[in-house]
Design a protein around this nucleic acid. Sequence first.
DNA 1: TTACATGCAAACTGTTTGCAAATAT
DNA 2: ATATTTGCAAACAGTTTGCATGTAA
Lengths: 141, 141
Amino acid sequence: MQEIQTGIAEKLRLAGLRPTRQRLALAELLFGGGDRHVSAESLHREAEAARIPVSLATVYNTLNQFTAAGLLREVAIEGDRTFFDTNTSNHFHYFLEEAGGLVDIGTEELEIKGLPSLPKGMEVDRIDVIVRLRKAGSGRA
Amino acid sequence: MQEIQTGIAEKLRLAGLRPTRQRLALAELLFGGGDRHVSAESLHREAEAARIPVSLATVYNTLNQFTAAGLLREVAIEGDRTFFDTNTSNHFHYFLEEAGGLVDIGTEELEIKGLPSLPKGMEVDRIDVIVRLRKAGSGRA
DNA sequence: TTACATGCAAACTGTTTGCAAATAT
DNA sequence: ATATTTGCAAACAGTTTGCATGTAA
């Protein structure tokens, strides 16, 4: 674990990003608590609710910048919106199909084995695992 | 050829879809050979190249209908386009980051263990695994 | 002061949809 | 004959971008 609030401006600086009002506020929302999964829309709504004036475009830009800087991770979910995860370490997800929500699965709990030999000249960048859950009894296709 | 087409028409009928010219042609492209990964755009281009007149809207509709009918499977890749896989059985994917391509990993080769207890009232619908590959030596972030 | 960040609106991309014409049964 | 499907273009949603204004260093 690292330092918490004071570290945010520093964190941005280290990432080569000026700690502006908007970025600080968004970073606070994102990294102030525990691990989070957000979309641009959801974060924007949250900012509005917190009386932080930020345009949606800036939220998009900020999320992309944070991702490029390694502060966030993009989660591949099919469908329209893009999700960002504040937990950038290696871990996997439950995806709640009805609700559309994401929940972390701790890395240590899940293990992948038997990865066959890779196409030559290739190496693993990372592995995304999404366990899709549905209400028990919704039956199968 | 008649052989194949007849089987495909049957397949569509069983799925509750009228075997129209366009659907037959697209189904032929999709299911005529081995397993395939397509996007609406790529399939549309392929159809044009094969002198099959189909509008892009119909390609979209058809892919969605085939997916709803269980003939295709949607693959979750972050980014703009949606991919469809003709292999609907349980299996996983390599994603070639530079090229943007998908390659199957046979199920039996890969194994997931240690799935923790699920949130109550939930059951696993399916598990998506995407092993992201990059050119060896592209270094890490 | 000066380069960078923000906000707005317009632009863009992939995808969906309304409706008239065409087609399958 | 009748319900479905097609194609086109317009509509849409999410996201990106150009440019004038504001702000951090």
